[in-house]
Amino acid sequence: MEAIVTIENLRKYFDIKKSIFSKPRKVKAINDISLNIPRGSIFSVVGESGSGKSTLGRLILKLIEPTSGKICFEGEDITDLGSKDLIKYRREMQIVQQDPYNSLHPRKLIKDIVGEGLKIHYKLPSDEIYVRIKGILERVGLREEHMFRYPHEFSGGQRQRIAMARALVLRPKFLVLDEPTSALDVSVQARTLALLKELKESLELTYLFITHNLAVVDYIATHVTVMYLGKIMELGSKDEIFSNPKHPYTMSLLEAIPSVGRGKRIRKIPRGEIPSPLDPPKGCLFHTRCLQAMDICSKEEPDEIEISKGHLCRCHLYS
């Protein structure tokens, strides 16, 4: 499959100062990541807090500038484009954020929230804008009369639909979904996920789906990337990663999920806490918590190894 987004050796370092006198320290939020997002895929990025998964999404959209590396969208290098040149790409790439309570302007009507992008990108007559807003709201399961209400009148699930409408009204090809259902109750999450799946097919979209929930990934994704402290630990097709996980971190993530209705079970949980990204471990980033750590793991960083076609894993067990 042809890639819609390609990133090469992408890095993003943030400067952190503990006090105004101390020297800034670098947090390597994204540390040398390369990947291809195939057109039409639901490419999911999973990881725990501090893994850099949200930073990755924001980098691809150029909402923040990378420290180094290259980002291509449909074959065009957009890494160094300024805001003017980016405008035509902004139409094609949109984002839905996690918290539908903070991502909608509280004092704007829904029609203005959803229609803002249309006014910026297309010089359309107002009746055409109205028709488009109405159309997209109905597409995500809302109604025409909702256009004249404010965000606080809606439930969490409805707000997330408004955020989806805002992203989709420009008819993008690529959507970053940053934990789109994490703030929702499970019955609402189920319907939101089903809607996302359906929209992806009918509007021919590609998703970068950022989440911490592997069960959601199993339900919706076609590809999985597991991140830990700014690096890719394992990457492959969803079926491959779930049926044949190789990296101890992926295995422990799968292991840690509570299973429904199967009673208690004994499981292998990684020990210790997630290390601070300010002070990541030497060698393999995961060795401090890994149940299968060997001597070499604390000394040398493992390379990416191709387990099978398209299945990459960064672990000494397979080198």
Binding site: S155, G157, Q158, D185, V186, S187, V188, Q189, A190, R191, L193, A194, N213, L214, A215, V216, D218, Y219, F242, L254, I257, S259, V260
Partner: peptide, 19 residues
């Protein structure tokens, strides 16, 4: 029937309406 379960490969139905 709303909970995604790994390996279950089923459609999630959810519950219509809201609380």
């Amino acid at each position: 029937s709303s909970i995604p379960i790994i390996g279950a490969s089923r459609e999630l139905t959810g519950i219509p309406g809201s609380v």
